[in-house]
Protein backbone atom coordinates (compact mmCIF):
# COMPACT_ATOMS: atom_id res chain seq x y z
CA UNK A 1 0.00 0.00 0.00
CA UNK A 2 2.34 2.77 -1.06
CA UNK A 3 0.53 5.23 -3.25
CA UNK A 4 -2.99 6.66 -3.39
CA UNK A 5 -3.56 4.96 -6.75
CA UNK A 6 -3.14 1.51 -5.29
CA UNK A 7 -5.54 2.23 -2.43
CA UNK A 8 -8.25 3.38 -4.86
CA UNK A 9 -7.57 0.31 -6.99
CA UNK A 10 -8.05 -1.95 -3.96
CA UNK A 11 -11.32 -0.18 -3.11
CA UNK A 12 -12.64 -0.78 -6.64
CA UNK A 13 -11.58 -4.43 -6.52
CA UNK A 14 -13.34 -4.90 -3.15
CA UNK A 15 -16.60 -3.34 -4.46
CA UNK A 16 -16.49 -5.59 -7.51
CA UNK A 17 -15.85 -8.61 -5.32
CA UNK A 18 -18.93 -7.83 -3.16
CA UNK A 19 -21.18 -7.51 -6.24
CA UNK A 20 -19.79 -10.76 -7.70
CA UNK A 21 -20.56 -12.50 -4.43
CA UNK A 22 -24.17 -11.25 -4.35
CA UNK A 23 -24.65 -12.34 -7.96
CA UNK A 24 -23.49 -15.88 -7.26
CA UNK A 25 -25.66 -15.99 -4.13
CA UNK A 26 -28.65 -15.02 -6.28
CA UNK A 27 -27.80 -17.89 -8.62
CA UNK A 28 -28.19 -20.26 -5.68
CA UNK A 29 -31.20 -18.69 -3.94
CA UNK A 30 -33.73 -17.69 -6.58
CA UNK A 31 -36.47 -20.12 -7.61
CA UNK A 32 -36.48 -20.26 -11.43
CA UNK A 33 -34.14 -19.75 -14.37
CA UNK A 34 -35.38 -16.29 -15.38
CA UNK A 35 -34.93 -14.80 -11.90
CA UNK A 36 -31.53 -16.43 -11.55
CA UNK A 37 -30.27 -15.01 -14.83
CA UNK A 38 -31.92 -11.71 -14.01
CA UNK A 39 -30.13 -11.15 -10.74
CA UNK A 40 -26.78 -12.72 -11.50
CA UNK A 41 -26.05 -11.26 -14.94
CA UNK A 42 -26.38 -7.68 -13.67
CA UNK A 43 -24.32 -8.13 -10.53
CA UNK A 44 -21.60 -10.19 -12.17
CA UNK A 45 -21.22 -7.87 -15.16
CA UNK A 46 -20.78 -4.74 -13.04
CA UNK A 47 -18.62 -6.59 -10.49
CA UNK A 48 -16.16 -7.96 -13.04
CA UNK A 49 -16.05 -4.59 -14.81
CA UNK A 50 -15.19 -2.98 -11.48
CA UNK A 51 -12.38 -5.50 -10.88
CA UNK A 52 -10.97 -4.79 -14.35
CA UNK A 53 -11.20 -1.03 -13.72
CA UNK A 54 -9.27 -1.55 -10.49
CA UNK A 55 -6.59 -3.36 -12.50
CA UNK A 56 -6.49 -0.37 -14.88
CA UNK A 57 -6.02 2.04 -11.96
CA UNK A 58 -3.27 -0.16 -10.52
CA UNK A 59 -1.29 -0.45 -13.74
CA UNK A 60 -1.96 2.96 -15.32
CA UNK A 61 -1.65 3.55 -19.07
CA UNK A 62 0.48 0.55 -19.82
CA UNK A 63 -0.02 -2.58 -21.92
CA UNK A 64 -2.12 -4.33 -19.25
CA UNK A 65 -4.21 -1.31 -18.26
CA UNK A 66 -5.38 -0.43 -21.77
CA UNK A 67 -6.23 -4.07 -22.43
CA UNK A 68 -8.30 -4.10 -19.25
CA UNK A 69 -10.31 -1.12 -20.58
CA UNK A 70 -10.90 -2.99 -23.87
CA UNK A 71 -12.04 -6.02 -21.91
CA UNK A 72 -14.59 -3.87 -19.99
CA UNK A 73 -16.12 -2.66 -23.26
CA UNK A 74 -16.28 -6.16 -24.65
CA UNK A 75 -17.87 -7.53 -21.48
CA UNK A 76 -20.57 -4.85 -21.26
CA UNK A 77 -21.48 -5.41 -24.91
CA UNK A 78 -21.63 -9.22 -24.85
CA UNK A 79 -22.86 -10.32 -21.41
CA UNK A 80 -26.48 -9.02 -21.84
CA UNK A 81 -26.69 -10.68 -25.25
CA UNK A 82 -25.76 -14.06 -23.84
CA UNK A 83 -28.33 -13.66 -21.04
CA UNK A 84 -30.99 -12.77 -23.61
CA UNK A 85 -30.11 -15.82 -25.73
CA UNK A 86 -30.22 -18.16 -22.74
CA UNK A 87 -33.58 -16.79 -21.50
CA UNK A 88 -35.20 -17.06 -24.92
CA UNK A 89 -33.92 -20.58 -25.51
CA UNK A 90 -35.10 -21.65 -22.05
CA UNK A 91 -38.58 -20.30 -22.81
CA UNK A 92 -38.67 -22.01 -26.20
CA UNK A 93 -37.46 -25.32 -24.77
CA UNK A 94 -40.44 -25.29 -22.39
CA UNK A 95 -39.12 -24.19 -18.99
CA UNK A 96 -42.06 -22.91 -16.89
CA UNK A 97 -42.03 -19.71 -14.88
CA UNK A 98 -42.17 -19.74 -11.08
CA UNK A 99 -45.65 -20.67 -9.76
CA UNK A 100 -46.11 -17.29 -8.04
CA UNK A 101 -45.53 -15.38 -11.28
CA UNK A 102 -48.10 -12.78 -12.28
CA UNK A 103 -48.37 -12.91 -16.06
CA UNK A 104 -46.71 -14.40 -19.12
CA UNK A 105 -47.48 -12.39 -22.25
CA UNK A 106 -44.84 -14.21 -24.29
CA UNK A 107 -46.50 -17.62 -23.94
CA UNK A 108 -49.89 -16.06 -24.77
CA UNK A 109 -48.56 -14.47 -27.95
CA UNK A 110 -46.68 -17.53 -29.13
CA UNK A 111 -49.82 -19.65 -29.48
Amino acid sequence: MNSINEIIAYIFIAIGLAFDFFGCLGLVRFPDIYNRLHSSIKCVTLGTSSILFGLFLYKGFTHTGVKALLCIGFLVLTAPVSAHVLARSAHKSGVKLWEKSVCDKYAEDKK
Partner: peptide, 18 residues
Protein backbone atom coordinates in the same frame (compact mmCIF):
# COMPACT_ATOMS: atom_id res chain seq x y z
CA UNK B 1 -33.17 -28.14 -16.17
CA UNK B 2 -30.39 -27.93 -18.78
CA UNK B 3 -30.99 -24.18 -19.12
CA UNK B 4 -30.07 -23.68 -15.44
CA UNK B 5 -26.76 -25.43 -15.97
CA UNK B 6 -26.03 -23.35 -19.07
CA UNK B 7 -26.79 -20.11 -17.17
CA UNK B 8 -24.48 -21.12 -14.31
CA UNK B 9 -21.72 -21.91 -16.82
CA UNK B 10 -22.16 -18.45 -18.36
CA UNK B 11 -21.77 -16.78 -14.96
CA UNK B 12 -18.72 -18.95 -14.21
CA UNK B 13 -17.18 -17.84 -17.50
CA UNK B 14 -17.54 -14.18 -16.51
CA UNK B 15 -16.04 -14.91 -13.07
CA UNK B 16 -12.97 -16.48 -14.70
CA UNK B 17 -12.24 -13.14 -16.41
CA UNK B 18 -12.07 -11.66 -12.91
Amino acid sequence: TPADRAAALDILGILIIG
